[in-house]
């Protein structure tokens, strides 16, 4: 297994807060890696640097062995923590716009958009404005945009926050199926059981540092939640 994503000594400081402090880890092809940490641990900051929307102060990021550039951006799908969609446009229009931003051709995009709509269960509402969607439906579309261009690495920042357990399972199962085809997933979540079930490996972070890393079973003594509490002194959710 080769590392699709390698992060070494990543650092970011906002004025007087060091949000990410020498973070390092790797995600391999076909692997699902969960980044767990309490509120303010630096997860979103780290992910922003990994997908290239925020400049790092120090450290190294390698995607498929290369320093980030336009070509590596095309290999990465990004699902931000906050919904990033045009609410006044329909799901299809949003997907068409982002497919264009990822350089997909129209004809190719059309079939892929239909596939993604099916995958996130929005085919029948595809031509309604996103503003009319429920919270969970918008979340699903938010994820769909990240999958559109068949990325090799999917980076999701709390993709399922606010989604009902049933949809959560169905979305993540679909993502799981894609990992079978080699998709690597890096994601953060506040749902411990979800991480236990889905992740091949998890990393527990706080104050911008990696506290421990391992498979859920390695860290799950007696369970992941207890390990988390012991290491961070905090519950996963405030």
């Amino acid at each position: 297994m080769s590392a699709l994503l390698e992060v070494v000594g990543l650092r970011k400081r906002y004025k007087d807060i060091v949000a990410v402090d020498g973070l390092g880890f790797a995600v391999h092809e076909g692997e699902t890696y969960g980044l767990l940490g309490p509120n303010g641990a630096g997860k979103t900051t780290a992910i922003s640097m990994i997908v290239g929307v925020l400049d790092a102060d120090a450290g190294e990021i390698r995607v498929a062995g290369r320093a980030p550039d336009l070509a590596t951006r095309a290999m990465v799908g990004y699902v931000p923590q906050q919904l990033a969609l045009y609410p006044d446009l329909t799901a299809r229009q949003n997907l068409r716009f982002f497919s264009g931003m990822y350089g997909m051709r129209r004809a190719q995009a059309r079939t892929r958009i239909a596939e993604v709509l099916e995958l996130i269960g929005l085919s029948d509402r595809a031509d309604h404005a996103v503003a009319t969607y429920s919270g969970g439906m918008s979340r699903r579309l938010n994820i769909g945009v990240g999958l559109l261009h068949r990325p090799r690495l999917l980076v999701m920042d709390e993709p399922t926050a606010g989604v009902d357990p049933q949809s959560r399972t169905s979305i993540l199962d679909s993502v799981q199926r894609l990992t079978g085809e080699g998709l690597a997933v890096l994601y953060t979540t506040h749902y411990m059981e979800e991480a236990e079930r889905l992740c091949d490996r998890v990393g527990i972070v706080d104050h911008g540092r990696m506290l421990t890393e391992g498979t859920p079973s390695e860290l799950g003594d007696p369970d992941l939640e207890s390990t988390f509490l012991r290491l961070t002194g905090r519950a996963l959710r405030d």
Binding site: V51, G52, V53, L70, A71, R73, A74, V76, Y78, P80, Q82, L83, A84, L85, Y86, P87, F98, M101, Y102, G103, V145
Partner: peptide
């Protein structure tokens, strides 16, 4: 709005200059 909605950030993460 495009920036406030986070769409700009997302486009920034795509291979678009």
């Amino acid at each position: 709005e495009t920036r406030a909605l986070g769409v700009s950030r997302r486009v920034h993460a795509s291979p678009t200059r």
